[in-house]
Design a protein around this nucleic acid. Sequence first.
RNA 1: GCCGAAGUGGCGGAAUUGGUAGACGCGCUGGAUUCAAAAUCCAGUGGUAGCAAUACCGUGUGGGUUCGAUUCCCACCUUCGGUACCA
Length: 952
Amino acid sequence: MNYNFRKIEDKWQKYWAKNETFKAENQSEKPKFYALSMFPYPSGAGLHVGHPLGYIACDIYARYKRHKGYNVLHPMGYDSFGLPAEQYAIQTGQHPAITTDTNIKRYREQLDQLGFSFDWSREVRTSDPKYYKWTQWVFIQLFHSWYNNRTDKAESIDTLVSVFEKQGNVKVDATCDDDTPMFTAEEWKGYSSTKQQNILLKYRLTYLADAEVNWCPALGTVLANDEIVNGVSERGGHPVIRKKMTQWMMRITAYAQRLLDGLNTIDWPQPLKDSQTNWIGRSEGASATFDVLPNSNVEVLKKTEGEDISRTSMSHKIEVFTTRPDTIFGVSFMTLAPEHELVQKITTPEQRAEVEAYVEATAKRSERDRMADVKTISGVFTGAYAEHPFTKEPIPIWIGDYVLASYGTGAVMAVPCGDQRDYDFAKHFKIDIPNIFEGVDISKEAFADKVNTIVANSDFLNGLNYREATRKVIDELEKMGHGKGKINYRLRDAVFSRQRYWGEPFPVYYNAEGVPQIIDEEHLPLELPEVEKYLPTETGEPPLGNATHWAWNTNTYEVVANSLIDNKTIFPLEMNTMPGWAGSSQYFNRYMDPHNDKTIYSPEAINYWQDVDLYIGGSEHATGHLLYSRFWQKFLFDRGIAPKEEFAKKLINQGMITGTSAFVYKDLTSNKIYSKGLIDNKDVNPIHADVSLINSSDELDIEGFKKWRPDLAEAEFILEEGKYVVGREIEKMSKSKYNVVNPDQICEEYGADSLRLYEMFLGPLEQSKPWNTAGITGVHGFLKKLWKLYLNIGDSEPTPENLKTLHKTIKKVEEDIENFSFNTSVSTFMICVNELTAQKCTCKAILKPLAVLVSSYAPHIAEELWELMGHTESIANANFPEFDATHLVERTKEYPISFNGRMRFKMQLPADMGKADIEAAVMAHEQTTKYLEGRTPKKVIVVPGRIVNIVG
RNA sequence: GCCGAAGUGGCGGAAUUGGUAGACGCGCUGGAUUCAAAAUCCAGUGGUAGCAAUACCGUGUGGGUUCGAUUCCCACCUUCGGUACCA
């Protein structure tokens, strides 16, 4: 009887589906374990061999935990809102829901083929109204919340309103907009409802603000940074400008410190933690204000502001943030970002033309341009001066594009002797570089080392080190009302609006005053309307502007026709939709109770499952999904909706599986295509060839290629040794590089168990590695040998050899799974089967536990063998075999050894060790005793030729 | 530039806390079986020298610590990933 994997795999996949083998219950006597793979975006291209890598690893772990007696939750779903389906809709007119549905069907077929232990009864799709109802619901909770810095958590907006009514906002310490005005309780009560609403919006955790976006006028849409290449749109190459638009924002900055602190409590990869830490970018320092000296710009001010301004109120202040307040006496100029709002106000008439030209030139340069060009130093003097808070000296104010408007305050106090960029700027424009460091030469470069700093030439700071001087300066600044200690974060609030169709609609309408109003929870979901076309409207509104029925009737709580809008009971709805990360920011919780239509999930469900125990996915989500999800989770925790502040205890990043692209080389001048060995110095153009046209020795199927690329059918192929050899290169696996390998064809040829084993065998899970099918015959051969081993199974007693092999394997496999070293355990299985085959082992006592060991990796064959051994229950619920160390040490003996007349100790040696081996071990030990500084060990454990451990 | 990961045979990769470097698989070589092939099985396979036993050299490079280093320390080189002037 041969190993018929097609029949076996088909049989067990049907069995698992029919018996709902992997359905998880929300209660159990067993301990819980939640294993989760990041859900995929169902793209039109289907799964390629890179996708399942993480799923297989997670599945192995989930199955292992089930064998270990856990109640395992292992769900799967789809992140089904997204751009590709929308773009397909724009091109073809097909509704994205249809495209998405088709793709999901294909994904499901492919996933089912691989034998995952998913509980499909819990599937979620982010684009399903029943699901996005709860995404909208979380948005509403955020809207109804503010961040109280005193309690350091999010609270209901009602508590804020009651404080306002009692004492105004003077004593409120909240994370809110910078321009929030101060008011008393009386003033608050006197405000109109609209004004109150607008003030509250400055406190809410989701709020409206004008944010700068990349606007492409030609496409009539906003583009992500990724979609812009060399300053023009990736699609079509149209110019892109920066434009302010009113957008929904998420006040993630309120959580900056807690997002940082939380990293210490979770077992996530260090590189990922590092990138979140850098992204949040905490820096400690001080803010300081510099007064702008009054001078000839009085005229300018009068003109620009159109008012008669007295000399006192006319003076402007520049606020800066610095991490080096100790160097404040080294300031010799200030630099503002060209976009800084003060630039227009303080520039003197003489400098005006030059400054305006520079500002304009900067605005034209794309952000990428500006960043790529680090070497060029540019800037312009504004003509204005600021007053040094301590020395009262005038300091020239410059503008320069090395200062970014979006970081800190958009202004820096330049200390050329202590910062290289300031130094370069000063050198370039021949500005003073005063030295304020003791015993440091700054003639060549700035001195940025704060550990070794002793301050000099700095009045009351002389002789102090960095720490002392910093504290003293902050004290003095605070006394003078010129600044204070401050912690600055690089993290910015997240833009939450997208001008797209295929996303969650906001549960928001706008009243007659244009103030956003929330649709009550009980009227959710607010479903996406039908539109005729998926592009922005002619007036530049988002695609939802095309909907004819997109207005809210506040009496009937229904979406009605836009034409009925009457500003009394029927209002326009928000036309933006939510971004891709909205739906993925709490899906892991929804799996716990996915069909609940009364609440986001029942308290019982979330109190049972708590959080994700193991989360596997790609590292590309480090500062996107994984940061936003932590933010939402912390918010849900604050508001008592989730019991845990971090949603995933442990996270593993699986590496990327890269493809091996193939190239043919076409001569630039003729219609000849040269084999790889013949290109030498010729001017050739490498052209991708589909990898399915290449055999294992890099030879091209020329006829196949000609059929595939009819435009090159006439080309002449120049061969070497009768063959056309392609060039190879490792690239990301992608449709456009024609290097995609689908799992389907491999399943067809070798079976899912082979594919699962092979993907694990390929290398360490977290490492990226090229796909190469050459070795798959090895693991396939292993499965065949495994199969054979069970053909003559009997009830004989196991030999000591048999037991040793088995327990060695149990130990190694258990360790490997716990350490996520799945690659080495595949090797362990192979060794085990080879040994048992050589031992002619046929006894059930060995082969039963072996089947359980293998079943996490190759579940189909394990089920079949399990049944063959007479079991009627699925192997999925069998217990993981107990490791018994006595089977391994059985053959070692302890020998008392003495030498040098006085050293006495025991050596634990294998029983079959030869005399020469023992002598070698004693010699080795003799050398080792030096290391022990003359102490006599109690016991030395030796394997032939090698000292394993010294005890005592 | 900064942050992170990593450099081991022809290839993918093993190697517990420092303890026989190259497990396991692929590939390759030879053999068995076969009319032949596939499949299967057996043996060999880091390099150099040698008929051989064996010797020497070998984990990116150069130093160091150690009885002993792929592993620890210092400096450098290379590759990949992330990030972008962060005041």
